[in-house]
C-alpha cells in the first residue's frame, strides 16, 4: 500500500517537543481525503526517515484535510518535526477501530485524557459537542505533567462553556487554577450515575490503569469503559505482527477497545 501525498498546510507548536500539523491531500481535486472515525489513526511517512502511527486529532467534519498532534521522540517524529508549511509527507490511512459514538447515546459521558492522550479524544469531543442533545452530559478529566504541557489550551477554554472540564497537573505554576495532584483524585470525587455512564480513556497505559481502578470502584461497569491502546504499529493492516496484544492486533482490532473485552489481557505484564 503506497502512501498518498499530503502537504503541510499549517504547523503549530503546542509546547516544546510537541506540535500539530494540519495537512491537505495533494490530489484534493479528486475529492476529499477518506473520512475517518474519532479514535482512528494514520501512518505518517517522513521522506526517507520512515513511518509512524499518529492518531487523527482534527474534526471528522472537516473534509479538507487531516490534523495530527505529534510528540517528538524517535527518528521519524524528529523528521516530521522539521516539516514546515508547504512541505510534503506521505499518508496511509485512516486505520483501526475508533470510539463507539453510539455507546454514548443518552449517557453521562466521561472523557478521561492523560498528556498527549487528549489528541485522539479531540475528534470525539468535536462530535459530542456537535450533538449535545444525544447525551446526558459531557465531562472532560484531563491530566498532564505541567500546565504548559497541556494540549489545545485555547480550545479547552472554549469547551468549558459547553462541558465540565476538570484539569489536573503533577506540578503547577503561579497561574494554574486547576488541580495539582493526579486525575484519579477528582475522578474519585466526581458524582456520577454509574449505570448510566460511559467512559472514554486515552493516556499512558499506567494512567489508564489507575483511572479504570477508580471507575470500577465507583461501580462503573467494565463494559462502559473504552480505552485506546498503544503498541508498535508498522503495517496497520494486521500483517506485520508487531502490534499484537494477546489475540488482538491493536492496528485493526483497536486501537480503541471495550475494557470488558480486553480486561484479561490488560492485566498481563509484558504481553
Amino acid at each position: 500500500m503506497t502512501p498518498e501525498v499530503f502537504r503541510v498546510e499549517q504547523r503549530r507548536e503546542e509546547f516544546p517537543g510537541t506540535f500539530t500539523l494540519r495537512i491537505r491531500g495533494e490530489r484534493a481535486k479528486n475529492g476529499s481525503p477518506a473520512e475517518f472515525q474519532p479514535g482512528q489513526f494514520n501512518m505518517l511517512y517522513a521522506f526517507g526517515a520512515g513511518e509512524i502511527a499518529i492518531s487523527l486529532s482534527g474534526s471528522p467534519r472537516d473534509r479538507d484535510g487531516y490534523v495530527h498532534t505529534i510528540r517528538t521522540h524517535g527518528f521519524v517524529s524528529q523528521a516530521l518535526e522539521r516539516l514546515q508549511a508547504g512541505d510534503l509527507l506521505g499518508v496511509r490511512g485512516p486505520f483501526g477501530c475508533g470510539w463507539p459514538l453510539s455507546a454514548a447515546k443518552g449517557k453521562e459521558v466521561l472523557i478521561i485524557a492523560g498528556g498527549l492522550g487528549l489528541a485522539p479524544l479531540r475528534p470525539l469531543i468535536y462530535n459530542l459537542l456537535g450533538d449535545t442533545q444525544s447525551v446526558r452530559n459531557i465531562r472532560l478529566f484531563y491530566g498532564a505533567r505541567r500546565p504548559d504541557e497541556m494540549l489545545y489550551r485555547d480550545e479547552l477554554a472554549q469547551w468549558a462553556g459547553s462541558m465540565e472540564i476538570v484539569q489536573s497537573v503533577d506540578h503547577g505554576d503561579a497561574d494554574w487554577a486547576g488541580h495539582i495532584g493526579v486525575i484519579t483524585g477528582p475522578l474519585a470525587g466526581a458524582e456520577l450515575d454509574p449505570q448510566n455512564t460511559v467512559a472514554f480513556l486515552c493516556g499512558p497505559e499506567v494512567m489508564m490503569r489507575f483511572c479504570i481502578q477508580t471507575l470500577t470502584a465507583k461501580a462503573v461497569p467494565e463494559s462502559a469503559i473504552y480505552l485506546s491502546m498503544e503498541r508498535n504499529m508498522k503495517c496497520a493492516t494486521g500483517h506485520c505482527g508487531h502490534c499484537q496484544w494477546g489475540p488482538n492486533f491493536v492496528c485493526k482490532d483497536g486501537p480503541v477497545f471495550n475494557f470488558a473485552g480486553v480486561q484479561s489481557w490488560f492485566n498481563i505484564r509484558a504481553l
Binding site: 511517512y45 526517507g48 506485520c240 505482527g241 508487531h242
Partner: peptide, 25 residues
C-alpha cells in the same frame, strides 16, 4: 508471518525506498 519495513534514502536524498523483510517476535 511477521515482517518489518525499512525505509531508506540514497545519498542525494531525492530517492527513497521501502522494503519489507521477515521479522521475528
Amino acid at each position: 508471518f511477521c515482517s518489518d519495513v525499512q525505509d531508506t534514502t540514497d545519498l542525494s536524498g531525492e530517492h527513497a525506498e521501502r522494503w519489507e523483510r521477515w521479522d521475528s517476535c
